[in-house]
Simulated scan of single mutants.
Amino acid sequence: MDKLENLRTQFIAIQQKTRAGDIFQSIGEVLSDTLTQVKVQPKTPVQLPENGDDALAKMKAYSQRLDNHRSGDGLDMVSDADLHLAAAQLANPLPKYRDTGAFFFLSDVIQNDLLSDEQMRWLTSYLISDDVLFSHIFEPNNAAIYQRSFSILVLSLLLFKQRTKSAFMAPQQLAIVINQIALYVAIERDTRGFIGTNGWAHAFTHIGNAVAEVFMMPQLLRADKLFLLASMLAGYRELQQPLNMGETERLVEVTMYSANAHPLYHDYILLTLKLWRKDLVTRQPPQNEGRWHQMYNRARFFNAIILRGKDNVPEKIFNYVSETRDFLT
């Protein structure tokens, strides 16, 4: 984890410079220079969760009781042991344990107030821990993507809860959550959507959900939101695997939401799009599969902006993308 810790230290330093107003136009370049350190490491065995059937039986029984009550009223709170068992199944490659199992269960109990504030703080800390959110992240595509992807998805539910119902996170924990998300969205490289019989991984759609929740928190500093946006776009810029199952459209939706929210984000996004086009003008033509995917991912981003329509995209951004669209496709 020394490599991860080194990246985190550099990201925090960039965030502090962003807060201080020392950098703006160069945030993307500085982040990209930092991300050049992200090299693929050899694959190592992924430890998968056990007790899937036991966990699923308990989750189904509890969900049935919840359905019968139609609300959380009158139901016992989820025990710590059952919560821990369910959270561990987010790493299960099989969708019946992970997706329709653990994720559906955690979504239900979070939304129906069946976790205490202390349990939600524990769940948040568990999901953002290095061993969970960054599990095997520097390695080629592997089974750990399910844990990473569904951790960021459940984090989006917890952020929604924090924003709309119960501010269970103290400012210090929320700051750590945002820092971990910013680092994760920049270094995730597994772009797979639906994977054979294992169902959805869809990490980049889930990334969009988490970033959207952060942007809707009015009390957060604009500089921190800008840094998160810059991290997401810097990570997207570096992708050398294709995004072709709706992920780009979700990321563009979040990006345009931020562009419409404040001129600060609008100006940064426009600068980033110009930087991406400059890359294609100044760099040599792609010579390998990864670089071709990189180019076409950016083309998809521009096309997705156009498809949102001029009424949903700030005028300067829409005009710029329209003018350069033919060059990118």
Rank of each mutant, 00 (worst) to 15 (best):
S231F: 09
A102Q: 09
Y184S: 09
F11Q: 06
A223V: 06
G309V: 03
D117V: 01
K3T: 14
V252N: 09
P171S: 01
E315V: 13
A186F: 01
L264P: 02
D326S: 11
I23K: 05
T324V: 15
L226C: 04
S156F: 10
L220H: 02
V109Y: 05
I306H: 11
L31Q: 05
G196N: 05
T197S: 15
L31C: 03
R298I: 09
V154R: 03
L114T: 03
D54E: 14
K225H: 04
L220A: 00
E5M: 13
V211P: 00
T248V: 08
S166P: 09
T36M: 13
A299K: 13
R148L: 06
L220R: 03
Q173T: 15
G199F: 07
K165N: 09
K274P: 04
L7N: 11
A259W: 01
K310V: 08
A259P: 02
F302K: 07
S135E: 11
Q15A: 09
K17D: 06
R298A: 13
L133H: 10
Q147D: 10
S71A: 06
G199W: 09
K39W: 08
H266C: 05
D67A: 15
Q119H: 01
T282R: 14
P93Q: 10
L220G: 04
N297A: 08
T324P: 03
Y62N: 13
D54T: 14
V40K: 14
R298M: 10
L85T: 01
Q64L: 15
N260E: 06
G196F: 03
F160V: 02
A186L: 01
A144C: 09
G196R: 04
E323Y: 10
L273Q: 07
D82Q: 14
F138I: 00
L264N: 05
R70C: 12
Q47I: 14
Y184K: 08
Y265G: 06
Q240C: 12
Y146G: 02
S129F: 11
I152S: 05
N288K: 14
R298D: 10
Q180F: 01
L123W: 04
D311Q: 15
Q64D: 14
F194N: 12
R192M: 04
M216G: 13
T164M: 11
M59E: 11
P314S: 10
V252I: 14
H84Q: 08
W276M: 12
A304I: 00
I181W: 00
Q180T: 09
R308K: 15
G309C: 09
L280R: 13
T164V: 14
Q111P: 04
A91C: 14
F204M: 07
A212I: 07
D131C: 06
H69Y: 10
E118D: 06
G101R: 03
T18Y: 02
D22I: 09
F194I: 12
I23T: 07
I152V: 12
F134M: 08
I152T: 03
G309R: 11
Y320D: 04
F318K: 11
L270E: 08
D33K: 11
A182P: 08
L155E: 07
Y320I: 10
K3Y: 11
I187D: 00
Y257A: 12
P286A: 12
L273H: 09
H262M: 08
V313Q: 07
K39D: 12
F11H: 01
A57R: 11
P49M: 11
Y97P: 13
M232W: 08
A201W: 00
A86P: 14
S116D: 05
T255S: 06
P95I: 12
I195C: 11
M295P: 03
A182H: 05
N209K: 13
